[in-house]
Simulated scan of single mutants.
Amino acid sequence: MKAVHFGAGNIGRGFIGHMLSASDYEVCFVARNPKKISMLQKRKEYPITLANRDQDTTIVNNVTAINVGEQDRVAEHIASADLITTAVGVSALEDIAEPIAKGIHLRMKQRNPAPLHIIACENAIGGSTRLKKRIYPLLDEQTRQKAERYVAFPNAAVDRIVPAQDHLDPLQVTVEPFYEWVVHRPALLDGFKKIKGVHYVDSLEPYIERKMFTVNTGHCVAAYFGYLEGFKTIRQVMSHKPLRAKIRHVMEETGAMLIQKHDFDPQKHSKYIDTILERFANPNLTDQVTRVGRSPLRKLSPYDRLVRPAMQASEFGIAIPHLTSAMAAAMLFNYERDEEAMKLQHMIREDGVSAFIRERMGIPDTHPIHGQVVARYEDIKGRKEATILT
């Protein structure tokens, strides 16, 4: 079985590529970094190390790579592949749509009758559906009609912490032991070879929202609260008991919404939160606060990990004082080396806090959360400025 994976970064190699190889897929990474591409082509393997006490290391084999710019070669690989996966970031899905479209066109032209599954493994709700919407306008009508029969785009939820890292071997990657990959079963076509370790479910939304609004929300909240307190790493933040308690309170607020919406068992969800907090505190992982908090504009957008659960909680009548504080903390993330953070600060200076909340976060002036976030922002900013002055 052949898999084409877009993105040879830490998530691609340390999570998706590893699982595909373990399921006996030959994996061709489509990447941009010439050095990594050359090394993957030459070695056809790389090591991944678990961030546990023994630092267990596994060799991932049956891999190679090609440059994303070689679109004809990429198309040839897609034409004969059984599976396409991605780990490029939601904003980059548009960039890989054209080579995938060319591959699908070639595949249909060659009359390959085997099913092709395209799974976007991104931190987003409906990632594969988003990718499909980017690809299909690039196909002619005849190819689209054929693709509807032979190409499927199952949505997925993925979860594994893979921090930024620096090894002597550029291909080596360190990952946490925990992982979760959930795929929407009804979207699969006959003939799909299941991937070992993947959980296939009939309803994906509960799993996606549980992950997005617990793991992703909690992780970025740890970064924003920690940044305001001057901490450098997530591990330092999690060692600070008052901050750890604040992070848990946020996750309990999003959890209250998830429990009502998806009928989760409260005790099981509380244990899930415990597990996530322990993952953040893993002593064998060092993750920078500024890395986890990066791209605050995206994380404050209407359908992402902060605003979306807040608005849904409000619909259920759930109080969210800690989540609104976290949203305010995100608005105060002013890390100078983060382009989005600087753009965010410029917007607030130019148009004001209320306009930012209305126009960028999608929360109307009349919505009760709007005033709560403004109040939290002014309070946190005022206390921070008072600390600086003293």
Score class of each variant (00 low, 15 high):
2 K>Q: 15
3 A>F: 04
5 H>P: 01
11 I>P: 01
12 G>T: 08
15 F>A: 11
16 I>A: 11
18 H>K: 15
18 H>N: 14
21 S>R: 11
25 Y>P: 02
26 E>Y: 04
31 A>C: 12
35 K>D: 10
39 M>A: 05
57 T>D: 05
59 I>W: 14
62 N>K: 15
67 N>L: 04
73 R>N: 06
79 A>V: 00
83 L>V: 10
83 L>Y: 14
83 L>R: 10
89 G>H: 14
93 L>M: 15
94 E>N: 09
95 D>R: 07
96 I>E: 13
101 A>T: 12
103 G>M: 11
107 R>Y: 01
108 M>Q: 14
116 L>C: 04
116 L>A: 01
116 L>I: 09
118 I>Q: 06
120 A>G: 14
122 E>G: 01
123 N>Q: 03
125 I>R: 11
125 I>D: 12
128 S>M: 00
130 R>S: 04
131 L>S: 01
133 K>D: 10
136 Y>K: 00
137 P>V: 07
138 L>S: 01
143 T>E: 01
144 R>C: 12
145 Q>E: 07
151 V>M: 03
151 V>N: 06
153 F>C: 01
157 A>K: 02
160 R>V: 03
160 R>N: 03
165 Q>A: 03
173 V>I: 09
177 P>F: 06
180 E>A: 09
182 V>R: 05
183 V>C: 09
184 H>S: 10
187 A>E: 13
190 D>I: 02
190 D>E: 12
191 G>D: 00
193 K>G: 05
198 V>Q: 04
201 V>G: 08
203 S>A: 13
206 P>M: 07
208 I>R: 13
212 M>N: 12
215 V>C: 06
222 A>Y: 08
234 I>P: 03
241 K>E: 15
242 P>A: 00
242 P>H: 08
242 P>C: 07
247 I>A: 07
247 I>L: 08
258 L>V: 04
269 H>F: 15
269 H>E: 12
274 D>T: 05
274 D>H: 00
275 T>C: 06
275 T>V: 05
275 T>I: 03
278 E>Y: 01
285 L>Y: 04
289 V>D: 05
304 D>Y: 00
317 G>H: 03
317 G>V: 05
322 H>I: 04
325 S>M: 09
325 S>T: 11
329 A>I: 13
331 M>N: 10
336 E>P: 00
346 H>A: 11
354 S>F: 04
364 P>L: 06
365 D>S: 06
381 K>H: 15
384 K>E: 14
387 T>I: 10
389 L>Y: 14
